[in-house]
Design a protein around this nucleic acid. Structure first.
Lengths: 158, 158
DNA sequence: CACACACTAGGCAACCTGTCCAGTGAAACA
DNA sequence: TGTTTCACTGGACAGGTTGCCTAGTGTGTG
């Protein structure tokens, strides 16, 4: 039984369809793809089992929720304190994402805020976390390419 | 008619519920929240109209799809060429996200790759884009805080 | 006091879901 | 070559859900 972690064309077409119109049900998908309903159902089950398809979380627009500002911070932290720092960052609601990256113990943080005053406050909390030494923060002015997976799916369709 | 871009407690509880169990239908949500079905329906319609709720896109695990590596690049670009550079970056499938940030014309790029060789290839394509001057790239080793919105919703519940 | 508004509670037909089943073609195996 | 496995098709079924609508209630505003 080969690992087969690759997506075949049908998987990719299905995911592409769901990406464009997430509300579609299994039946409608089967019609659009020209396959039987059971097939679509089986594919979705398999994708979930394999962990490729995690689910269908609501896609929220933070800006529309009042969090119009996004900022990134690169944190340089004390040796061996990544876990502790990450934990403290996790406790800050406005911190939306943290990545540990190569380099001397760096963390890349994405955060949001309601306005400049709020952002100042959030940044303060982030950079004042214990064991954080040097930091450099920059504000997102625009997002020329919003988070996307579509192109990778298109590749998989062949 | 006030702007009212704020979420009230019910909105937040609904979104929280959908965040945890996205598959729930309107009826089930109404049961869990202890309100009438029509109310949930009305709230969801309103959230969509306001642009807060964009939809329910499939959440794909790129690692499970074979793209196990994530890298970030900060690009310094020639004055006034942000649009052109962004366009060329958009054409690269592995580029999953681009933000324009404060600083001297910087772009923050997130990209993925299948393995080290592939990553090398992707990075090359990104940093060789026209008008890109200095670049600095780092590889994501882990993600202590995966993309999340939940804490902000919890704040809104009060 | 009247009106608008949000919510509740219920009813209806059309549709979809989960779950079976039998039949087919192709690839893998002995 | 004959057999088994597997994915897919096409169809069936009951039960739940959706979209849509109506009527009644309570609250806040002018």
């Amino acid at each position: 039984m080969p690992e087969e972690s690759e997506l075949d064309a049908l998987d990719a077409r299905l995911l592409l369809l769901l990406t464009d119109e997430p509300r579609l049900g299994v039946l409608e998908c089967s019609r659009r793809l020209g396959v039987a309903r059971g097939t679509v159902q089986a594919r979705m089950d398999r994708l979930e089992r394999r962990g490729v398809l995690r689910g269908f979380p609501p896609d929220l627009d933070l800006a529309a929720m009042g969090y119009g500002l996004t900022a990134f911070a690169v944190l340089e932290i004390a040796q061996g304190r990544r876990t502790e720092v990450a934990e403290r960052l996790r406790a800050i609601a406005e911190v939306c994402e943290v990545h540990a990256t190569t380099g001397q113990g760096d963390l890349l943080v994405r955060m949001v805020a309601r306005d400049n005053a709020d952002l100042q406050h959030v940044i303060d909390r982030v950079v004042n976390v214990e064991w954080v030494s040097r930091t450099s923060t920059s504000i997102a002015l625009s997002t020329p390419v919003p988070t996307r997976v579509r192109p990778l799916l298109e590749l998989a369709v062949e």
